[in-house]
Each structure stands twice: as C-alpha cells, then as structure tokens.
C-alpha cells in the first residue's frame, strides 16, 4: 500500500471526527447524533482495520475470523437492549 493511501485514510478519519462533532453542534436530536455517530465510527473502524491493520491484504480466512467477534457482539448488544423492554 502506498503511503499516499494511508494519508488519504487519515484525512477520512479526521473528516469523520469533524463531521461527528459538527452534527452534535448542528442538531439537538439525540437520535440523529446517535445514528450519525454509529455510522461514522463504524466506518472509521472499518477503514483502520482494512488499511492500517492491512486486513485487506490478508488471507480471506483471517478476514472471516475477524468477523466472528463482531457477530457475537452484535448478538449481545441487540438482545441486551431488547431485554430492557417490558413484557
């Protein structure tokens, strides 16, 4: 991977942070901030994993392996929040 790509990823990371903060200042809606933040933070994570951690250059099996904890965690988060709902 060329260094220029890495700088591009960095620029995206910075932009995403700025966008998150800007969203916070521009709206009072909790839901809006929450969804923007979820999307942007996830995209940042994907960018770092693929480029800085170079998962995109690794074997497919390792990429699959990296998905396992995400899958389990999503189950935990979703069901945990669902368990809060009353009867």
């Amino acid at each position: 991977m060329k260094s220029i790509v890495a700088v591009g990823v960095w620029a995206y990371m910075v932009l995403a942070v700025v966008a998150e903060v800007e969203t916070f200042y521009l709206t009072t809606s909790f839901a809006t901030v929450a969804s923007v933040v979820t999307v942007l933070a996830t995209s940042q994570a994907v960018a770092v994993v693929l480029f800085y951690m170079q998962l995109k250059d690794e074997q497919g099996s390792l990429r699959l392996f990296a998905l396992i904890p995400i899958m389990f965690l999503s189950a935990l988060l979703i069901a945990m929040l669902a368990s809060l709902g009353g009867k």
Partner: peptide, 17 residues
C-alpha cells in the same frame, strides 16, 4: 491501530451522546 479504533467509539459515546 486497535487502540485507535476503540477510541473512535469511546469518544462519541462519552462526549457527544
């Protein structure tokens, strides 16, 4: 990089929400 990723979630969760 992993520590970096964690912060990408910690920052908005604690500061912006």
């Amino acid at each position: 990089a992993f520590v970096d990723i964690v912060w990408c979630f910690v920052f908005p969760l604690f500061y912006l929400l």
